[in-house]
């Protein structure tokens, strides 16, 4: 009896220390994750809060004072939209991005379909070239492209930007779609061929409908790339009436015109679309990122 008693008293504290250990580990883990998220979110939060603060508040105190005394104003947004040309830039960003996304998906799909599903000489070499082209620094294309489009008299239109943005992403797009297209069972394509479908039909009625998700992934990635690019629109559209949001915000930031709070409002306007997209379409974004990573 006493042996059992002592056994019990011995084992009880031992168990609780190991339990305590895992407990502590758990607490440490959750704290670390929480801190990480906090640190990563704070800059976004600071931007968001500042957009609603007045110029005078911001110059005197840090943004966190807004939590102490909350005096929101909307004037920053009004000013950004109407005085600094951000409203116009929203339109420009859309004009720049939407055709780019459409073209990228279309060209990549055709390229990937050909490389993945047709057999011909040079197929592998072309595919490897696409792999290599993905990594090329975009700076490389600037000088020749500028000369080319100047000669054609197309600078100052969106055409050069569409073409360049597409050209820079299509190698990646082909790579991303290639993997998916190549995994479609060839029986399916052969069945369609026997059923009398021509190649364009196989592409349009069999391959594309099966590839909705991966096409969406490419679309969302290219949307973010094109929407967020600075250098290419800066060079080909200038910072005038055709400038998209990135260029507009960058020039506001550099010239300090309109003041800090207007700048934050303009910045927030420029990020809201991609932020909403990445939260709502996260699944496709993740798929695109993972499908595009060159596997080791």
């Amino acid at each position: 009896m006493s042996a059992i008693e002592s056994h019990r008293t011995m084992s009880a504290p031992m168990q609780s220390t190991s339990k305590l250990g895992t407990r502590l580990k758990g607490v440490a883990l959750h704290t670390a994750v929480f801190l990480l998220c906090l640190v990563w979110f704070t800059p976004v939060l600071s931007l968001f809060v500042t957009t609603f603060r007045s110029e005078s508040d911001s110059s005197r105190t840090g943004w966190w004072h807004a939590f102490i005394e909350w005096r929101p104003v909307l004037s920053n947004y009004v000013e950004a939209m109407y005085l600094t040309g951000v409203g116009r830039s929203v339109v420009n960003s859309i004009v720049l991005t939407v055709p780019t996304v459409l073209g990228t998906v279309l060209f990549s799909a055709i390229g990937a379909f050909t490389l993945a599903r047709m057999r011909f000489r040079g197929r592998i070499a072309l595919f490897l070239a696409m792999v290599g082209f993905q990594v090329l620094p975009p700076q490389l294309v600037l000088v020749p492209m500028l000369k080319f489009f100047l000669a054609l008299g197309l600078t100052g239109t969106f055409i050069p930007v569409w073409i360049i943005e597409m050209g820079l992403t299509v190698p990646f797009g082909i790579f991303l779609l290639y993997g998916f297209f190549a995994s479609i069972p060839s029986d399916l394509v052969e069945a369609a061929r026997i059923d009398g479908a021509s190649e364009p039909r196989i592409f349009l009625q069999i391959i594309l409908p099966l590839s909705g998700a991966v096409l969406a992934s490419l679309a969302i990635l290219q949307f973010m790339i094109a929407w967020n690019h600075l250098l290419i629109p800066l060079i080909f559209l200038g910072s005038g009436s055709l400038s998209p949001l990135t260029v507009q915000v960058a020039s506001l930031a550099q010239t300090n015109a309109g003041g800090l709070n207007t700048l934050t409002a303009a910045t927030f306007i420029s990020v809201i679309v991609p932020l909403v997209l990445i939260v709502t379409l996260q699944k496709y974004f993740v798929r695109g990122v993972l499908g595009g990573a060159v596997k080791g």
Binding site: C37, W40, T50, N228, H229, A253, T264, T267, S270, I278
Partner: peptide
């Protein structure tokens, strides 16, 4: 999602935020 949020923004926006 918290970690991905900055990824969705332009580097310009990131730069403005961090300037602050």
């Amino acid at each position: 999602t918290f970690l991905i949020l900055p990824t969705a923004m332009s580097f310009v926006a990131g730069a403005v935020i961090w300037k602050m």
